[in-house]
Protein backbone atom coordinates (compact mmCIF):
# COMPACT_ATOMS: atom_id res chain seq x y z
CA UNK A 1 0.00 0.00 0.00
CA UNK A 2 2.71 2.39 1.02
CA UNK A 3 4.64 1.67 -2.11
CA UNK A 4 1.51 2.12 -4.21
CA UNK A 5 0.55 5.53 -2.83
CA UNK A 6 4.23 6.46 -3.09
CA UNK A 7 4.15 5.88 -6.82
CA UNK A 8 0.93 7.84 -7.09
CA UNK A 9 2.48 10.78 -5.26
CA UNK A 10 5.51 10.66 -7.53
CA UNK A 11 3.69 10.53 -10.86
CA UNK A 12 0.46 12.22 -9.91
CA UNK A 13 -0.16 13.65 -13.36
CA UNK A 14 0.81 10.78 -15.57
CA UNK A 15 -0.42 7.62 -13.91
CA UNK A 16 -3.54 5.46 -14.06
CA UNK A 17 -4.47 2.71 -11.66
CA UNK A 18 -5.16 -0.76 -12.98
CA UNK A 19 -7.35 -2.95 -10.77
CA UNK A 20 -9.36 -5.28 -13.03
CA UNK A 21 -8.40 -3.49 -16.23
CA UNK A 22 -11.67 -4.34 -17.96
CA UNK A 23 -12.43 -0.68 -18.68
CA UNK A 24 -8.95 0.81 -18.49
CA UNK A 25 -7.33 -1.31 -21.19
CA UNK A 26 -9.94 -0.76 -23.93
CA UNK A 27 -10.02 2.93 -23.07
CA UNK A 28 -6.25 3.21 -23.29
CA UNK A 29 -6.34 1.55 -26.68
CA UNK A 30 -8.79 4.21 -27.77
CA UNK A 31 -6.40 6.89 -26.62
CA UNK A 32 -8.71 8.16 -23.91
CA UNK A 33 -5.94 8.20 -21.30
CA UNK A 34 -2.49 9.23 -22.34
CA UNK A 35 -0.78 8.63 -19.03
CA UNK A 36 2.83 7.55 -19.17
CA UNK A 37 2.51 5.02 -16.35
CA UNK A 38 0.07 2.38 -15.25
CA UNK A 39 0.11 1.31 -11.60
CA UNK A 40 -0.90 -2.33 -11.29
CA UNK A 41 -2.41 -2.80 -7.82
CA UNK A 42 -3.86 -6.26 -8.42
CA UNK A 43 -1.56 -7.94 -5.95
CA UNK A 44 -2.17 -5.78 -2.89
CA UNK A 45 -3.70 -8.57 -0.81
CA UNK A 46 -5.04 -6.37 1.99
CA UNK A 47 -7.43 -4.69 -0.47
CA UNK A 48 -9.12 -7.94 -1.33
CA UNK A 49 -11.96 -9.63 0.52
CA UNK A 50 -15.10 -9.06 2.54
CA UNK A 51 -14.69 -8.52 6.29
CA UNK A 52 -17.77 -8.36 8.49
CA UNK A 53 -17.22 -6.05 11.50
CA UNK A 54 -19.88 -7.11 13.98
CA UNK A 55 -21.74 -4.04 15.15
CA UNK A 56 -20.08 -1.93 12.49
CA UNK A 57 -21.35 -3.44 9.30
CA UNK A 58 -18.99 -4.80 6.74
CA UNK A 59 -15.82 -3.71 5.01
CA UNK A 60 -15.15 -4.65 1.39
CA UNK A 61 -11.68 -4.32 -0.11
CA UNK A 62 -11.60 -2.32 -3.33
CA UNK A 63 -9.93 -5.18 -5.20
CA UNK A 64 -12.66 -7.68 -4.38
CA UNK A 65 -13.95 -8.96 -7.69
CA UNK A 66 -17.55 -8.50 -8.69
CA UNK A 67 -17.86 -12.26 -9.11
CA UNK A 68 -16.73 -12.74 -5.51
CA UNK A 69 -19.27 -10.19 -4.29
CA UNK A 70 -21.99 -11.82 -6.36
CA UNK A 71 -21.30 -15.18 -4.68
CA UNK A 72 -20.70 -13.96 -1.11
CA UNK A 73 -23.31 -15.48 1.19
CA UNK A 74 -22.87 -12.84 3.85
CA UNK A 75 -23.78 -10.06 1.42
CA UNK A 76 -26.62 -12.02 -0.09
CA UNK A 77 -28.13 -12.46 3.35
CA UNK A 78 -27.60 -8.97 4.73
CA UNK A 79 -27.12 -6.61 1.77
CA UNK A 80 -28.98 -8.31 -1.10
CA UNK A 81 -29.32 -5.17 -3.22
CA UNK A 82 -25.55 -5.21 -3.73
CA UNK A 83 -25.58 -8.89 -4.70
CA UNK A 84 -28.27 -8.23 -7.28
CA UNK A 85 -26.48 -5.26 -8.77
CA UNK A 86 -23.09 -7.00 -8.91
CA UNK A 87 -24.64 -9.98 -10.68
CA UNK A 88 -25.79 -7.82 -13.58
CA UNK A 89 -22.45 -6.19 -14.41
CA UNK A 90 -21.21 -6.99 -17.93
CA UNK A 91 -20.67 -10.73 -18.38
CA UNK A 92 -19.39 -13.57 -16.16
CA UNK A 93 -15.89 -13.34 -17.66
CA UNK A 94 -15.66 -9.63 -16.99
CA UNK A 95 -17.00 -10.01 -13.46
CA UNK A 96 -14.18 -12.42 -12.75
CA UNK A 97 -11.73 -9.58 -13.45
CA UNK A 98 -13.63 -6.41 -12.64
CA UNK A 99 -13.48 -5.12 -9.06
CA UNK A 100 -15.88 -3.25 -6.80
CA UNK A 101 -13.39 -0.38 -6.54
CA UNK A 102 -13.15 -0.18 -10.30
CA UNK A 103 -16.91 -0.24 -10.64
CA UNK A 104 -17.24 2.66 -8.19
CA UNK A 105 -14.55 4.63 -10.04
CA UNK A 106 -15.80 3.67 -13.52
CA UNK A 107 -15.30 6.41 -16.06
CA UNK A 108 -18.47 8.07 -17.34
CA UNK A 109 -19.52 7.00 -20.81
CA UNK A 110 -20.75 8.66 -23.96
CA UNK A 111 -21.06 7.56 -27.59
CA UNK A 112 -19.05 10.63 -28.59
CA UNK A 113 -16.28 9.82 -26.12
CA UNK A 114 -15.80 6.04 -25.99
CA UNK A 115 -14.45 5.90 -29.53
CA UNK A 116 -11.05 5.54 -31.16
CA UNK A 117 -8.77 8.51 -31.70
CA UNK A 118 -9.44 8.37 -35.44
CA UNK A 119 -13.18 8.40 -34.84
CA UNK A 120 -13.01 11.31 -32.41
CA UNK A 121 -11.00 13.29 -34.93
CA UNK A 122 -13.93 12.90 -37.27
CA UNK A 123 -16.36 14.51 -34.85
CA UNK A 124 -13.97 17.20 -33.70
CA UNK A 125 -13.51 15.79 -30.20
CA UNK A 126 -15.60 16.82 -27.18
CA UNK A 127 -15.41 18.53 -23.81
CA UNK A 128 -14.53 15.36 -21.97
CA UNK A 129 -11.42 14.71 -24.01
CA UNK A 130 -9.32 16.86 -26.34
CA UNK A 131 -12.15 19.22 -27.32
CA UNK A 132 -14.28 22.06 -26.10
CA UNK A 133 -17.83 21.29 -27.15
CA UNK A 134 -20.55 18.85 -26.37
CA UNK A 135 -22.33 16.87 -29.08
CA UNK A 136 -25.25 15.77 -26.96
CA UNK A 137 -26.07 19.20 -25.54
CA UNK A 138 -24.84 21.58 -28.23
CA UNK A 139 -23.87 24.98 -27.04
CA UNK A 140 -23.44 23.61 -23.54
CA UNK A 141 -20.26 23.90 -21.56
CA UNK A 142 -20.99 20.98 -19.29
CA UNK A 143 -20.12 17.36 -19.99
CA UNK A 144 -23.12 15.04 -19.81
CA UNK A 145 -21.36 11.68 -20.15
CA UNK A 146 -23.44 9.15 -18.24
CA UNK A 147 -22.22 7.35 -15.17
CA UNK A 148 -22.81 3.75 -16.19
CA UNK A 149 -21.90 1.42 -13.35
CA UNK A 150 -24.34 -0.97 -11.69
CA UNK A 151 -23.13 -1.34 -8.10
CA UNK A 152 -22.94 2.33 -7.00
CA UNK A 153 -26.74 2.89 -6.94
CA UNK A 154 -27.00 -0.20 -4.72
CA UNK A 155 -24.22 1.13 -2.50
CA UNK A 156 -25.95 4.51 -2.30
CA UNK A 157 -29.10 2.80 -1.08
CA UNK A 158 -26.99 1.20 1.65
CA UNK A 159 -25.46 4.53 2.73
CA UNK A 160 -22.02 3.23 1.86
CA UNK A 161 -18.82 5.07 2.64
CA UNK A 162 -15.49 4.81 0.90
CA UNK A 163 -11.94 4.99 2.15
CA UNK A 164 -9.42 6.96 0.16
CA UNK A 165 -5.70 6.69 0.71
CA UNK A 166 -2.80 8.84 -0.36
CA UNK A 167 0.78 9.44 0.75
CA UNK A 168 -0.52 11.98 3.25
CA UNK A 169 -2.93 9.59 4.95
CA UNK A 170 -6.36 8.04 4.80
CA UNK A 171 -9.74 9.75 4.63
CA UNK A 172 -13.26 8.45 4.59
CA UNK A 173 -16.27 9.91 2.82
CA UNK A 174 -19.86 9.11 2.06
CA UNK A 175 -20.24 7.60 -1.38
CA UNK A 176 -22.98 10.13 -2.12
CA UNK A 177 -20.33 12.85 -1.76
CA UNK A 178 -17.88 11.02 -3.99
CA UNK A 179 -19.55 11.95 -7.27
CA UNK A 180 -19.65 15.50 -8.61
CA UNK A 181 -22.46 15.31 -11.13
CA UNK A 182 -20.14 16.54 -13.87
CA UNK A 183 -19.49 14.17 -16.76
CA UNK A 184 -15.81 14.99 -17.11
CA UNK A 185 -14.50 15.52 -13.55
CA UNK A 186 -17.01 13.02 -12.28
CA UNK A 187 -15.45 11.92 -9.00
CA UNK A 188 -13.66 13.47 -6.09
CA UNK A 189 -10.52 11.43 -6.30
CA UNK A 190 -7.22 13.18 -6.85
CA UNK A 191 -4.64 11.69 -9.14
CA UNK A 192 -2.44 10.88 -6.14
CA UNK A 193 -5.24 9.05 -4.31
CA UNK A 194 -6.43 5.49 -4.27
CA UNK A 195 -9.88 4.21 -3.37
CA UNK A 196 -9.12 1.39 -0.97
CA UNK A 197 -12.23 0.18 0.87
CA UNK A 198 -16.00 0.34 0.91
CA UNK A 199 -17.96 0.29 4.17
CA UNK A 200 -21.57 -0.77 4.49
CA UNK A 201 -23.03 0.37 7.84
CA UNK A 202 -24.75 -2.00 10.23
CA UNK A 203 -27.82 0.23 10.08
CA UNK A 204 -28.34 -0.72 6.45
CA UNK A 205 -28.10 -4.44 7.05
CA UNK A 206 -31.03 -6.73 6.37
CA UNK A 207 -32.85 -4.31 4.10
CA UNK A 208 -34.62 -6.05 1.28
CA UNK A 209 -33.09 -5.11 -2.02
CA UNK A 210 -33.78 -5.17 -5.72
CA UNK A 211 -31.82 -3.92 -8.72
CA UNK A 212 -33.42 -3.53 -12.15
CA UNK A 213 -31.30 -2.82 -15.19
CA UNK A 214 -32.28 -1.71 -18.67
CA UNK A 215 -30.07 -3.15 -21.35
CA UNK A 216 -30.59 -4.44 -24.84
CA UNK A 217 -28.84 -7.76 -24.37
CA UNK A 218 -29.19 -9.94 -21.34
CA UNK A 219 -25.44 -9.92 -20.87
CA UNK A 220 -22.35 -7.82 -21.64
CA UNK A 221 -24.11 -4.46 -21.93
CA UNK A 222 -23.62 -1.45 -19.70
CA UNK A 223 -26.84 -0.26 -18.12
CA UNK A 224 -28.89 2.16 -20.22
CA UNK A 225 -30.88 2.88 -17.09
CA UNK A 226 -30.73 1.25 -13.67
CA UNK A 227 -32.78 1.37 -10.48
CA UNK A 228 -31.76 0.08 -7.04
CA UNK A 229 -34.11 -0.06 -4.08
CA UNK A 230 -33.46 -0.99 -0.47
CA UNK A 231 -36.40 -1.26 1.87
CA UNK A 232 -37.11 -2.20 5.45
CA UNK A 233 -40.64 -3.15 6.41
CA UNK A 234 -42.44 -3.63 9.62
CA UNK A 235 -45.90 -5.15 9.96
CA UNK A 236 -46.57 -4.77 6.26
CA UNK A 237 -45.66 -1.08 6.27
CA UNK A 238 -42.53 0.54 4.97
CA UNK A 239 -40.24 1.42 7.85
CA UNK A 240 -37.49 2.90 5.69
CA UNK A 241 -36.62 2.92 1.99
CA UNK A 242 -34.05 4.39 -0.34
CA UNK A 243 -33.92 4.36 -4.10
CA UNK A 244 -31.09 5.28 -6.44
CA UNK A 245 -30.80 5.47 -10.21
CA UNK A 246 -27.85 5.07 -12.55
CA UNK A 247 -26.85 5.50 -16.20
CA UNK A 248 -29.21 8.43 -16.77
CA UNK A 249 -27.11 11.22 -15.24
CA UNK A 250 -23.40 11.99 -14.96
CA UNK A 251 -23.59 10.50 -11.44
CA UNK A 252 -25.56 7.77 -9.72
CA UNK A 253 -28.19 9.55 -7.66
CA UNK A 254 -30.31 8.82 -4.62
CA UNK A 255 -33.80 9.96 -5.55
CA UNK A 256 -34.83 12.60 -3.06
CA UNK A 257 -38.23 12.30 -1.44
CA UNK A 258 -38.59 8.55 -1.87
CA UNK A 259 -38.16 7.80 1.81
CA UNK A 260 -40.80 10.34 2.77
CA UNK A 261 -43.17 9.11 0.09
CA UNK A 262 -42.97 5.49 1.22
CA UNK A 263 -42.45 5.70 4.96
CA UNK A 264 -45.28 4.29 7.00
CA UNK A 265 -47.26 3.21 3.97
CA UNK A 266 -48.28 -0.14 2.55
CA UNK A 267 -46.96 -0.38 -0.97
CA UNK A 268 -49.51 -0.71 -3.72
CA UNK A 269 -49.45 -0.21 -7.47
CA UNK A 270 -50.47 3.45 -7.24
CA UNK A 271 -47.82 4.27 -4.68
CA UNK A 272 -45.16 2.46 -6.66
CA UNK A 273 -46.28 4.41 -9.71
CA UNK A 274 -45.81 7.75 -7.96
CA UNK A 275 -42.34 6.74 -6.85
CA UNK A 276 -41.65 5.91 -10.51
CA UNK A 277 -42.79 9.35 -11.61
CA UNK A 278 -40.56 10.93 -8.99
CA UNK A 279 -37.54 8.90 -10.07
CA UNK A 280 -38.17 9.74 -13.73
CA UNK A 281 -38.05 13.44 -12.81
CA UNK A 282 -34.60 12.95 -11.32
CA UNK A 283 -33.35 11.25 -14.49
CA UNK A 284 -31.80 13.53 -17.09
CA UNK A 285 -30.74 11.15 -19.84
CA UNK A 286 -29.28 12.54 -23.06
CA UNK A 287 -28.13 10.93 -26.29
CA UNK A 288 -25.04 9.50 -24.66
CA UNK A 289 -25.93 5.90 -25.36
CA UNK A 290 -28.18 3.65 -27.38
CA UNK A 291 -31.96 4.05 -27.03
CA UNK A 292 -33.44 7.52 -26.92
CA UNK A 293 -33.35 9.71 -23.82
CA UNK A 294 -37.15 9.81 -23.72
CA UNK A 295 -37.33 6.06 -23.72
CA UNK A 296 -34.69 5.70 -21.03
CA UNK A 297 -36.48 8.19 -18.78
CA UNK A 298 -39.74 6.31 -19.34
CA UNK A 299 -37.98 3.10 -18.36
CA UNK A 300 -36.75 4.67 -15.13
CA UNK A 301 -40.42 5.17 -14.32
CA UNK A 302 -41.40 1.62 -15.26
CA UNK A 303 -38.40 -0.05 -13.66
CA UNK A 304 -38.79 1.98 -10.48
CA UNK A 305 -42.41 0.96 -10.21
CA UNK A 306 -41.52 -2.67 -10.75
CA UNK A 307 -38.56 -2.58 -8.38
CA UNK A 308 -40.64 -1.01 -5.62
CA UNK A 309 -43.38 -3.60 -6.10
CA UNK A 310 -40.85 -6.42 -6.17
CA UNK A 311 -39.03 -5.32 -3.05
CA UNK A 312 -42.30 -4.79 -1.18
CA UNK A 313 -43.53 -8.22 -2.17
CA UNK A 314 -40.25 -9.88 -1.30
CA UNK A 315 -39.20 -10.13 -4.95
Amino acid sequence: MEEAVGYLAKHDLGIRVLAGGTDLIPSMRQGLFDSEHVLDIRHIGELRGIRPRPGNGVEIGALTTLAFIERADFLRRHYPVLTEAAATVASPLLRNMGTIGGNICLDTRCLWYNQSLTWRKGCGFCIKKDGDLCHVAPGGTKCWAAFSADTPPALLCLNAEVEIASASGVRRMRLSDFYTGEGDAYRKLQANELLTRVFLPESSADYRGVYRKLRIRGSIDYPLAGVAVAMKRSNGYVADARLAITAVNPAPLLVKGVTEMLEGKAVDEALAESVGVLAAKTAKPLTTSALTPEYRREMIRVFTKRAVMAVANGN
Binding site: K121, G122, C123, G124, F125, G131, D132, L133, H135, V136, A137, P138, L286, T287, T292, P293, E294
Partner: peptide, 22 residues
Protein backbone atom coordinates in the same frame (compact mmCIF):
# COMPACT_ATOMS: atom_id res chain seq x y z
CA UNK B 1 -19.62 21.85 -41.96
CA UNK B 2 -18.73 19.01 -39.73
CA UNK B 3 -15.11 18.04 -39.66
CA UNK B 4 -12.66 18.27 -36.87
CA UNK B 5 -11.19 21.71 -37.10
CA UNK B 6 -14.32 23.83 -37.22
CA UNK B 7 -16.09 21.96 -34.50
CA UNK B 8 -12.96 21.97 -32.49
CA UNK B 9 -12.99 25.75 -32.42
CA UNK B 10 -16.54 25.78 -31.22
CA UNK B 11 -17.99 27.06 -34.49
CA UNK B 12 -20.04 23.96 -34.94
CA UNK B 13 -23.28 23.89 -36.84
CA UNK B 14 -26.74 23.90 -35.41
CA UNK B 15 -28.01 20.46 -34.64
CA UNK B 16 -30.61 18.98 -36.90
CA UNK B 17 -34.07 20.25 -35.83
CA UNK B 18 -35.20 16.68 -35.21
CA UNK B 19 -32.31 15.88 -32.94
CA UNK B 20 -33.78 14.95 -29.57
CA UNK B 21 -30.94 16.71 -27.85
CA UNK B 22 -32.44 19.96 -29.10
Amino acid sequence: EHGGSLWFRGKGPERHPLDPAR
